[in-house]
């Protein structure tokens, strides 16, 4: 294992993040504040508590997930796509590293960035609503696993994409709708029967449910299922990545 290479890639990517620290952090923070103003204060004041939790507090876990999902995908996909686009990938291909090390560097950096952003949103939220995190360990576990598995997904997209349009396509067409419909702003128990069944096919439901449970001990599905789902998702990502690694897909011609 060439750990120095992993560190080099990781630091390089993190340096890129910190170079644009303003944009990296400002935009998620601003959109969170907007969500709070609109949903938490304006609309939320007219909504009853959801199972004993004020609406403003209820949406915090969902909001964090919403941002973390899209940030993970876009950071990781951009991180690996960019060297392919500019041609600097030649150096990765000619270095004494395996695909695993490339993966660790890029996915690690993308996940770290999303984790940081998630925590910043959590801190921002605490200015608007009284927050309690009943199970900090599970909260962090869910957050880290989500950051990792969606960064992995982003990495796969970054390798598959052969243009900037494709890079935007999946986040726009799949991730954002799934995250919105995954119960960020409502409990799927509030949905009528059939829609509730359909929602259960949405993997994001399990992430948000488990994550929300770690805050308020309140979940749409059981903790075990949530955890199992995210691990399955992570494994799927690893399988695809392994296949890419075996075939050199889109990397070596």
């Amino acid at each position: 294992m060439n750990l120095r290479a992993v560190a080099a890639i990781y630091n390089f990517e993190m340096a890129r993040t910190f170079r644009t620290i303003g944009q990296s952090i400002a935009s998620p923070v601003i959109s969170t504040v907007l969500y709070f103003v609109v949903f938490g204060s304006a609309i939320g004041s007219r909504i009853n508590n959801i199972e004993g939790i004020s609406y403003g507090a209820f949406i915090v876990p969902g909001l964090i997930m919403l941002t973390v999902l899209s940030q993970s995908v876009s950071n990781a996909s951009f991180g690996i796509y960019f060297p392919r686009f500019t041609g600097t990938i030649y150096e990765l291909l000619s270095a004494p590293i395996s695909f695993v090390e490339v993966l660790m560097g890029y996915v690690g950096a993308a996940a770290s960035k999303s984790l940081i952003i998630g925590l910043i949103i959590l801190a921002t939220s605490s200015f608007f609503v009284p927050l309690e995190v009943r199970h900090p360990f599970w909260m962090l576990t869910f957050l880290v696993l989500t950051c990792l598995s969606f960064s992995l997904l982003g990495f796969i997209i970054g390798i598959w994409a052969d243009g900037f349009e494709k890079l935007q396509l999946i986040p726009l067409l799949i991730i954002t709708p799934l995250a919105f419909l995954g119960g960020s702003f409502y409990s799927i128990r509030m949905l009528p029967g059939i829609w509730r069944q359909i929602s259960l096919a949405n993997p994001v439901v399990y992430l948000i449910s488990g994550f929300r449970w770690s805050f308020y001990e309140q979940a749409d599905v059981s903790l075990g299922i949530s955890l199992a789902m995210i691990l399955i998702f992570l494994m799927l990502g690893l399988v695809v990545v392994y296949w890419i690694f075996r075939t050199g897909y889109r990397l070596r011609n």
């Binding site: 120095r4 080099a8 890639i9 340096a15």
Partner: peptide
């Protein structure tokens, strides 16, 4: 930084 990165990448 770019030259240092290359050295690190090669372990």
């Amino acid at each position: 930084n770019t030259v240092r990165f290359s050295r690190g990448l090669f372990g």
